[in-house]
Design a protein around this nucleic acid. Sequence first.
DNA 1: CAGTGAGCGAGCTTCCGCTTGACTT
Length: 748
Amino acid sequence: MGNGTKLVIVESPTKARKIGGYLGNDYTVMASVGHIRDLAQPSQVPASAKAKFGKFGVDVEDGFKPYYIVGSEKKKTVAELKAALKDADELYLATDEDREGEAIAWHLVETLKPKVPVKRMVFHEITPEAIKASLSKTRDVDAHMVDAQETRRVLDRLYGYELSPVLWRKVGPGLSAGRVQSVATRLIVERERERMAFVRAPYWDVSATLAAPDAEGQEVRFASRMVSLDGRRLAGSKDFDTTGQLTPDGFAGNVRQLDEAQATAVATALEQAAFTVMSMETKPYRRRPQPPFTTSTLQQAAGNRLGMSSRQTMRAAQGLYENGYITYMRTDSVTLSQEAIEAARNAVEFHFGKAFLSEGPKQYTTRTAGAQEAHECIRPAGARFRDPQELATKVPADQLKLYTLIWQRTLASQMADATGSTATVRLSAPAGTYGEAVFQASGTVIEFPGFMKATGEGRRASAEPKTEQAAQPAGGAEPSASAAAASQATGRTAKQAESDENASLPPMRTGDVLHAVAVQADGHETQPPARYTEASLVRTLEAKEIGRPSTYASIISTIIDRGYVYERGRALIPSWLAFAVTKLLETKFPKYVDYQFTADMENGLDQIAHGQESGRDWLTRFYFGSGDGAAANADEAHAGLQQQVAQLGEIDARAINTIEIGDGLHVRVGRYGPYLEDMNHLDDQGNPKRASLPDTLAPDELTVEVGHELIEKNAGGPRALGVDPATGGTVEVRNGRFGPYVALVPDR
DNA sequence: CAGTGAGCGAGCTTCCGCTTGACTT
């Protein structure tokens, strides 16, 4: 038996070291380093069990019984835990308090087979008090929670290992489908389809640079934009739909859409005009700080502000965590511990003064659906936050930048709102025969920066082009992607971006008359929805409960590795292969790539976790369906995954792998890659003219015009070199997928 | 899946989520 020590097992080695320090010599604290067992790969199943478990590592005929094995890379950890358990007379399972953590605890019991008392302990804060308190409030492992996790695990195996082989047969070898990756890919494909279908609408407006004296009599220039002409509101980007037509609202509102000639004429007419102030109104401005970071929002902010990829961000965060500089970096919670709130408020007071504190301590609540909240938010570690300068010589540059971001955001969360005022002035000017032109300008003055003092937004609050939510325009995709396009992408109109440049407006009174320093006609085009970036994809996945904090970065890697998506700058662009795979899944397995699928699954898992349903029944419905007998009514009856895959024989692979471009053009995804066919132009043999697609051409750049050009270029076609003296056939040079080659065409 | 080349046949590919080192150029 043991020697009086107690063995405590947590998931992370860093956490183990820290807790070990708090608990003293009676306790040995060790780490499981994540999961210690997993479903066997089919290749790992021993011959004797092949018949039952050889396909999935799960026996679907026997209640979805899983075949678990300790992977080779986990053997050492398990051996060490077993050895330590020999010397212990109590085992404490202190894995995270979420579904996966509960399952790890259960697997530990199953694998270590302890002969001493086993206690499940949980804590949400790593402080000596919280941990000691949890020692005296232990419970048993929650079997329902474990059932829910196992159900999730088996579902993902069945989904992936049933559907991937469908893709091997119908599309290409080595491909994959999964509950998470297939939906992530679909999101990106859908966005590209929207871009392909998008019709840009041109519209023009007029901007005027005006000048008025400020309080000291100094002339201040400010930018203004025409908002209406002759009593009709000017059309802006929001007045057009995705087909380039005016929206019903815009149409009903009788908006005025100017072309270049008209806008130029109006601008000319206004050059010498008097601009009369019609109104000047001021509204209060207030902005609240954002909640502290979670994994998802950290990846978004690091991506948008620091240009770091999800993977780089997590690597840097891991480094900070291991050195004790930040709390755990894989979390979906925005909760701050008491210790953290105090530390943040102390830091705010020290750096910025009491006046910048929020009125009282602020606790944020996690709104993310499906959040499991086993951890705190991501924040500087400890009861006293290290200033970023303290780390300057201790950590690499990217870690320092990330730490600074985390430090700022955490402090800001306990700071006061930023307040000020937004002034809006409207001016009237006669535009000759075009009637009265109304111009508008607005400027925001931040009187009290509040939290912006910490985040640095205050200094350039209005010029800041990127918000955290902002999807970036396709990085370098369009050379014309100008400031206007960028502001479109952030969901702001060019109009707003322009007027935001006015940090403040000079004082003006109704009736004041101003003259224009410059008047200019400006052309605009509505912009298609921006492509996803890593940051905006993670944000969308999180909102749909797809994926977990520990997997956001690897989801992106997976879909890139499979060739479904590639990055250009920061934009995620789908391949034609992704179009083919997505089309197959959407048409043949719509339920499984529905954006709701994971959320529905989570509901089911919650029921299982609460003991209201068994995982086995739930998986039976998923895999074998609930036909006639099992379903409560006709609506509920449906085929399971197994039948749906089995009945797939007559699926027309050619149709699945064909993507219509228009005007007889379509892309086909073949074994050797995508190519273009023109069904309206056949060659001598009656085959459609074909062309390879350059790797650098994004799907939305393959317009009908570009497609015809590619066909044209290729149409030079085979070039005859001469006659083969041996056979009398013609020797030709042809262009192939692998480059030019010589072919011998037999004489007829 | 299958264009536009040529031969030979077998064997293999795949999921999601939890956590960190250990590779050896």
